[in-house]
C-alpha cells in the first residue's frame, strides 16, 4: 500500500447525502478480477451519458475539478454495498482523501486498506470546506496526516481526528496481513483453547 503523508490538491464538492457505492462504481464494473483501471468508470452513471459522452454539469467533468484529489461530500458517504471497488475506483481516478460528516462503516474501513484517508468533521466545518471546494481550481486544500490538519485556500486550519492505529498504517503504508501474521502464535493459542471450549465449530 502506498503511504499517505501529506496531500495537496483540488477539492471537489459533492454535497449530495447518502452517496452509495453503487453510485461510486456501478455493478457492471465489478466483473473485473483486478484492482486497477476502475477510475475510468468512477461515478459512471452520474458522469457519462449512455452513449459514453460526458455529462457536462457533473462536478468531476468540469475543467476545474478534472484532477481533483479530494472530495468534500454529503453525509453518509459510501453507504450500501461492501464493494472495495469503490475505493479502488476513487484511488485510480486520483482521489486520495474524502471529507464528510459521516461515512458508512465498511467503506470507511476499505479506504484505509488502500491508502485513502476518509476524514469525519462536524457539519459546520464540512460546510466551510464545501464552500472552499465550490471555488473551482482555487479550491486547493492541503491535508497533513501527521499533524492531523487541513489547510484551506485562505490559510485557515481545521484539525481532525483519526484512529492512531489506522494513522500509523497509512503513514507507513503498512500491510495488515503482515502485521497480523506476526501474531500467529496468539492465533494458534486461541485456536487451541477454542477447540476445547467449542469443538463443534
Amino acid at each position: 500500500m502506498e503511504k499517505f503523508e501529506k496531500l495537496t490538491g483540488v477539492a471537489a464538492p459533492m454535497p449530495l447525502v447518502n452517496i452509495d457505492t453503487d453510485m461510486i462504481i456501478p455493478k457492471q464494473f465489478l466483473k473485473t478480477i483486478k484492482r486497477s483501471g476502475l477510475g475510468a468508470n468512477l461515478f459512471d452513471e452520474m458522469r457519462f451519458n449512455q452513449d459514453g459522452s460526458e455529462i457536462e454539469d457533473f462536478v468531476l467533468n468540469k475543467p476545474a475539478y478534472r484532477d481533483a484529489k479530494i472530495l468534500v461530500a454529503g453525509d453518509n458517504f459510501g453507504c450500501g454495498s461492501s464493494r472495495e471497488h469503490a475505493p479502488w475506483a476513487l484511488l485510480d481516478f486520483g482521489i486520495k482523501c474524502v471529507i464528510s460528516t459521516s461515512f458508512a462503516d465498511i467503506f470507511f474501513n476499505n479506504c484505509f486498506k488502500n491508502g485513502i484517508l476518509p476524514i469525519v468533521l462536524p457539519q459546520e466545518e464540512v460546510d466551510k470546506l464545501m464552500d472552499d471546494a465550490e471555488r473551482g481550481a482555487n479550491a486547493v486544500l492541503t491535508v497533513d496526516l501527521e499533524s492531523q490538519t487541513i489547510t484551506g485556500p485562505d490559510g485557515g486550519e481545521i484539525s481532525f481526528e483519526v484512529d492512531p492505529f489506522k494513522k500509523d498504517c497509512l503513514l507507513n503504508g503498512l500491510d495488515d496481513i503482515g502485521l497480523t501474521m506476526q501474531k500467529a502464535s496468539a492465533i494458534d493459542a486461541f485456536e487451541g483453547e477454542y477447540g476445547v471450549r467449542a469443538p463443534w465449530v
Partner: peptide, 8 residues
C-alpha cells in the same frame, strides 16, 4: 467486509 479484509 471489503476485499482486503477477505484476503486478511
Amino acid at each position: 467486509i471489503g476485499t482486503s479484509e477477505v484476503e486478511h
